[in-house]
Amino acid sequence: MKIINSAHAGTLESSDIYIQINPFKEDKIELELESSVEELYGDAIKELIIKTLEDMNVSFVHVKAQDKGAMDLVIKARLQAAVLRACESDPVWEEL
């Protein structure tokens, strides 16, 4: 999927995550993460974000994520919502 626009999803509220997505000039996933549980789960969250993006075949993307202790299902849902918004696309369920 190709990122056409900037897009965001989620909130800054507790147990949620706020995600902003922007097109990026290089063929890679550029990830900026801040998390209230960074020490314990920072690496796991980054891994999940990258895996989710790879499953959707997304590259050339800059992701800024502000995590407030969100469960995996929330991180996936918010990230996918932001990507689909940025690609102006309906879900391809097999990739989600």
């Binding site: 900037s6 965001h8 909130t11 800054l12 509220e13 507790s14 706020y18 902003q20 407030k68």
Partner: peptide
């Protein structure tokens, strides 16, 4: 947090 989320969305 709710207010700031909505302001960030508006700015974004």
């Amino acid at each position: 947090l709710k207010v700031v989320t909505h302001l960030l969305n508006a700015a974004f």
